[in-house]
Each structure stands twice: as C-alpha cells, then as structure tokens.
Design a protein around this nucleic acid. Structure first.
Lengths: 137, 137
DNA sequence: AACCTAAACCGTAACAATTCTTATTTACAT
DNA sequence: ATGTAAATAAGAATTGTTACGGTTTAGGTT
C-alpha cells in the first residue's frame, strides 16, 4: 500500500484529512518495515513541535483498525508497518531492524486437526531472526 | 508436564525448593491454560499475605527460562502456562479463558520461500478465537 | 543442632508504554 | 462565514513490569 491508497482509505472511511495524519502515513510508506510509536514520534517532533502522545497512539490504533497498518510485538513493544495491499501472507521479521520478508504459505491451509466447535477469529504466523544486513553489521 | 516433573526440573537446575515456588507450579499444573501474573498473584495472596510482585515476576521468568512454563501475549498482557512435555507443536488459544488446544502441524516444515541469508532464530504460530465453553457462555 | 552463605524474598519505588481527561483548535459541511 | 463534530495538546493517571536495599530462609557444613 502506498501513501495515496492509504489516504484514500482514510477518506472513504469518513475520517478527516490532517497534515499530521498525512505525515504519519508518509513515515510508514517510506519506511516499509516495522517501527515503534516512539520512532514515529521522533520523526514527527521536528516538524510538529509539542506533538502529543495521544495523537500518535490514537492514529496508530485508527490506522490499524482500518487495515492501513498492521502490528506485531517485538521485544515487548508494539511495532507497526504499512499493510501490504495484496493477498494474505505472512512475514519473516528482523528482530533488530524490523525489516520483513514475505512468506507465501499460510499454515491455516494445512491444519488437519479437528477444531470443530472452536470459533477461529484470527491467527499469527511470524518467523523471527536477523536479516542479511543486520547479520553483516 | 505435571507438578512433580516441574519440581524435579527446578531441583536439577540447582534452584532451591520453596513453598511459594511449589504453589506457583501447582497453580499452573492445575490450571492447564494461559494465565496472567495478576491471576497468579490473586491465587497466592490468600495463602501468602504480602507476597511481593518481585517474587511473582522473578519466578515466572525463571520458569520460562527453564522451559517449565511457556508464554504468549493476549490483549497486551503476558500469559503463562505449563509447557507440554512432548514434541514441538502449536496451539489454538481461547482469547477469553486462555484454554489451549494442540495443533500438530508446524508451518516451518512447509516453507518453500527462499530465506537463504536470513538467520532464523524462532517462530510463532498461534490460532486465536473462542473455545466451545466460552461460546456457550 | 547451631552455623554459614548464597539464594529467595519483602516492601516499595521506579519505570516505560500506553491510555485517559479536559480544554482548545481545526476540518469541512452547511 | 458559521456551526459542529472531530482532532489535538498538555499532562496526569493507569497498567504491567522491573529494580533496589534490607531481611529472611533453604540447605549444605560443621
């Protein structure tokens, strides 16, 4: 998903356009990997002096709900990245830099256990480790 | 893993036997599903008035390191359960009560993506939803 | 059985991430 | 231009967790 697609999604859902929201989405569109609320705040602060935590967290939650961002937890802290637009898939995630690499298979296609009676609402499959760049460093 | 196996594992690793540790392990052995530090604390308090947070968290970490407990995160809070003794597998986890049901397949066996150059250190596969009992309720 | 020592524990403070509250400002439909 | 609901700022509060200095205890050693 690129910046324009994200902004359209926001507009279609009936939310207001603000410069801060645009900059948040621009941040994630440019980064293309998992980042924390704190990192986003550091990016915003020079441009919007005195920007509030509230603005950061409120919008991260909103974008997550709207499916613009996706989230995971690395090292006890929530990380966000822009959601890939196309079909369902999973990721290898670098624990150091948050970079991701797509994994095509989905284990839900392969479960042969009997889960009848269990209401399945979601699943998570993530592979963790170090990307090539972080190994070199 | 049952209570005795857990206590043996503790002893073999050279840690002291204490009544509090025994009660912590007894709690998880009886529960058999994911519980929070807070729930453990509530269980302990009537028996050990004034028990410290430190004791709870220190031992949860210890047991986790020793492989006696395993952990996951539900709704922003760490949950622990006694680790199943036998071979590697994954779980369906009830988001409401923490009950688990084993899933036999492991997606790592099925990845056909090229991850050469990526150092794989771990993975997580969990299915979330409601168990039969919590749907009925 | 008293003793020793490191481990375990208590009480409490600190901490970091996140959420909440109230007043103010802003986007944008009218 | 104006009105109104949404968005934001400022900062306090909450939550889950970790840290610290002093005290107690388990378990080995006389």
């Amino acid at each position: 998903m690129n910046l324009n697609e994200a902004l359209n999604k926001l507009k279609e859902a009936g939310y207001k356009y603000t410069n801060k929201r645009a900059m948040i989405l621009e941040f994630f569109a440019n980064e293309g990997r998992y980042r924390t609320a704190k990192e986003l705040l550091s990016y915003m602060e020079p441009h919007y002096d005195g920007i509030s935590f509230d603005t950061i967290y409120r919008n991260l939650h909103l974008f997550n709900e709207l499916g613009i961002l996706e989230s995971t937890e690395l090292d006890g802290e929530k990380h966000y990245q822009i959601r890939c637009a196309n079909h369902h898939h999973h990721h290898f995630i670098c624990r150091k830099c948050g970079a991701t690499k797509r994994i095509q298979i989905c284990p839900m296609d392969m479960i042969d256990d009997d889960l009848s009676g269990y209401m399945i609402e979601g699943h998570k499959f993530e592979v963790y480790g170090l990307c090539p760049a972080c190994q070199a460093a």
